[in-house]
Design a protein around this nucleic acid. Structure first.
Lengths: 206, 206
DNA sequence: TATAATAGATGACAACTTGTCATCTGTCAA
DNA sequence: TTGACAGATGACAAGTTGTCATCTATTATA
């Protein structure tokens, strides 16, 4: 988390900073990003950066958390529109994401995030589905999910189902971006995997 | 890939280099590793490093590919021992891996690889299951798999099944390492997810 | 044998990083 | 008026990386 000093800043200066962060983290992934570029862009002295943030990672994950928060709202909406159908909602989100990311220069920050997804970045993204990890946050989403058609016996199983779906979704987007797979082909693979997940990979369950 | 110059080196010097690489990449993950440390450890001039490798990544992925090749052999063995049962084989590999990684200071290189898994590193690991990506390599493994109990209609579906299993396995190991989850608990989650995969997440398939 | 050609070794170097810290500056409260 | 303190500032040490002109050794050729 940024230091208190950052939050004490006037709104416009905070915005300026955030824009500088987004610009640099859109240019290159986290590990290639340079604080020097950020301070140059934001026109603040180098020392100030360290007054506001612990380090590069701190700034990065703060920016990411903001964007994830926005995605979370969208996910909620879609889930509602699909009447709590988890699979349906995930499919639509994936399609939305892929199509949007394919649109050239836009969303470079997210593109870099996907292409350099580590478990820490993925954990942040998972907040879309699980909130910040607390039981209440999980409940808040899980209660909006229609469990009727899901083959689950408990909340723990629901949690794992969501983990699995998240995994497959991320992998699909990453794969599409990394190998520059055509849109339709990426979606085809995705739906195939989703279908496999639904049906199960084993013939005789019992 | 390392440059030809590297492969022209006498065996003992190559070994020296590889040990220096392993030492540095065991100390820290790829992005924090320093070429300076490597050349210091291997006692070669800085310029020589660039005579042998393109850059840090080049050296890293070469070392990783060697270790993955070893894992591939183990996987083949286990798959044979389990008479082609993919789930059984994956379970055993996962248990082996988790137990081994838990043993303190050993395998620090692999530990770092897991904790900083990117899609590029994951792709390398996937060679364990898919070979280098060619159709022949895939066939070579897939023909050893017993498809009787698998709910698949084609080789493409088998490919995706293996992707899914790999995904869940990696995630399990990463999760265990990152959150320092006790061994039994990690395995419990893993088996739960495997069970869900087997049975399917949906109640009525049709 | 003498010479040329080529592969490889070498380390100094420019051009960047990063995080720190002593020193300013401005704004309140007493 | 004077502290006190939060915050701003930029020079700095210590590190990094990739390059390149210059050696050196080995092998092929005349």
């Amino acid at each position: 988390m940024p230091k208190q000093t950052f939050f004490n800043l006037p709104e416009d200066k905070k915005d300026l900073l955030l824009h500088a962060l987004e610009k640099e983290f859109s240019r290159v992934p986290l590990f290639d990003a340079s604080i020097s570029n950020i301070v140059k862009e934001a026109n603040i002295p180098r020392g100030s950066f360290y007054q506001y943030f612990e380090d590069k990672e701190d700034a990065y994950f703060y920016l990411l958390s903001i964007q994830v928060e926005q995605k979370k709202t969208i996910f909620r909406q879609v889930l509602e529109e699909e009447n709590g159908d988890l699979f349906q909602a995930m499919s639509r989100i994936t399609e939305l994401t892929i199509v949007e990311l394919a649109k050239g220069e836009s969303l470079l920050f997210l593109k870099n995030a996907f292409l350099n997804m580590t478990h820490e970045i993925e954990n942040m993204f998972n907040r879309i589905f699980n909130g910040n990890g607390t039981a209440e946050q999980f409940k808040e989403i899980s209660c909006r999910i229609d469990k009727q058609n899901l083959n689950i016996k408990s909340d723990i199983e629901l949690y794992h189902v969501m983990q699995l779906l998240g995994m497959v979704t991320f992998r699909c987007v990453i794969n599409k971006l990394a190998k520059n797979i055509p849109l339709e082909q990426a979606l085809e693979s995705y739906h195939l995997e989703m279908q496999l997940l639904k049906q199960g990979l084993y013939k005789e369950t019992k």
